[in-house]
Design a protein around this nucleic acid. Structure first.
Lengths: 217, 217
DNA sequence: TCCTTTCTGTTGCATATCCCACATACTCAG
DNA sequence: CTGAGTATGTGGGATATGCAACAGAAAGGA
């Protein structure tokens, strides 16, 4: 259960009073839980939708050989759930794991979609907040597709850098994760990416110091 | 304007009476238009959200050199809009073009999100339908990311095939587009993909006849 | 503090992938 | 039917990418 202060910052319960918030939790049979780093948050076995209210988590895929790949980075406002991601198209399994200590709200997907008999105002606002979160998610996924659909490592990197640059509104920005994870994110070999990064630096397309990058132009 | 019969099949106006539908169109200042093949549907200059009610369209990216890439395939129920896709992260432009004759509804995004003063029931249902469509979209994008995040052409192909197989519930299925477009979809060179396809056929992993494929196992 | 683990940076080598080029088959409009 | 345009199928040669392996730097826990 969130405190009144935390509620203010909640993306899912935005614009909802503390009293309504508590009633929603019971009406929707919503569950709120906290997690520590590396804990398993969700294994795609239930129909619940999860929303990250605080902290950071990652959606990862584990293939038959046990190799893990980061599919999504879930920050505050990140949503996940069986109905939102591919229903395990292959033999490999999906997991949401905690990176930094998390608060997560779980709501049964059917409850959100089914029209509430008492047509409560709360329901309507919650659905709208949910819609906003879904729109954000679709946007994030679209950006990812944009990057991944590039043909070379160089193009993928530059595409991603330009996205970050645009998001921060500055030619200088900081990666949200490590370089190793970046290689995962753009789905390439880490060493090959490092090589390409060096070339980009040498020819002056980017400057970098640790995780801080500056792109030219 | 849809006929009563067409309305039944509409994903956005699902469960909405014909009278409500007409009132919504005016209340939300929604616009409905029809398009012929190859016509430009949307150029991402307005804040409207579009929903494909009938026909088929494609979201394409055109880079600086004028090379077009299919980013998304929009069938019935497909949603698109500036607020849903990357806001032109790079210098290249985005377009939604008509493939097969289309009916499209445009609604201003702000109208959907802003809480209607009269708190009409219509509004609430529309938002819920929109939420469903957004969930579908996120799922489609997730599938695409799943494919694109594979490291080799072979893996991308098999991943995509397994998805189709699972969607149709059969080991035999038909590609929704041409092999050339498939190469685009999985973001690889067409000739390289053909070569890999040949190998997969030779070793018996897949059988194919035209656009119809059957995967083993 | 030390110790363990992860991240960063780099290289040689094998090869999967890209790019170009060509030939045939197919589709559709006139 | 005929031609234009597009899709399919194949191959050779160049190279970008993946893989394995290593070492130092940085981070985090005991």
């Amino acid at each position: 259960m969130l405190s009144e202060l935390e509620l203010e910052k909640s993306p899912l319960f935005h614009d909802i009073s503390y009293q309504d918030y508590r009633e929603i939790l019971s009406c929707f049979q919503a569950v709120q839980r906290s997690f520590r780093a590396d804990e398993l948050i969700y294994d795609f076995s239930s129909d619940a939708v999860g929303v990250v209210e605080r902290g950071q988590a990652s959606l990862i895929r584990i293939d038959e050989e046990g190799v893990a790949t980061v599919l999504e980075d879930l920050g505050v406002g990140g949503v996940f759930g069986k109905t939102l991601a591919f229903a395990g198209s292959t033999g490999d399994s999906l997991e949401v794991v905690c990176r930094h200590p998390c608060d997560v709200v779980f709501i049964d997907y059917a409850h959100i979609l089914s029209r509430c008999g008492n047509a409560c105002r709360r329901h309507s606002i919650l659905v709208q907040n949910m819609l906003q979160l879904m729109a954000d998610k679709a946007q994030a996924l679209s950006r990812r597709v944009d990057v991944l659909s590039r043909r070379s490592i160089r193009e993928k990197l530059m595409c991603y850098f330009r996205q970050l640059s645009q998001q921060t509104g500055s030619r200088t920005f900081t990666l949200p994760f490590s370089l190793s994870t970046l290689a995962d994110y753009i789905a390439t070999d880490r060493s090959a990416m490092m090589r390409e990064l060096k070339r980009l630096r040498e020819e002056g397309s980017v400057r970098s110091d640790g995780r801080q990058f500056t792109i030219r132009q």
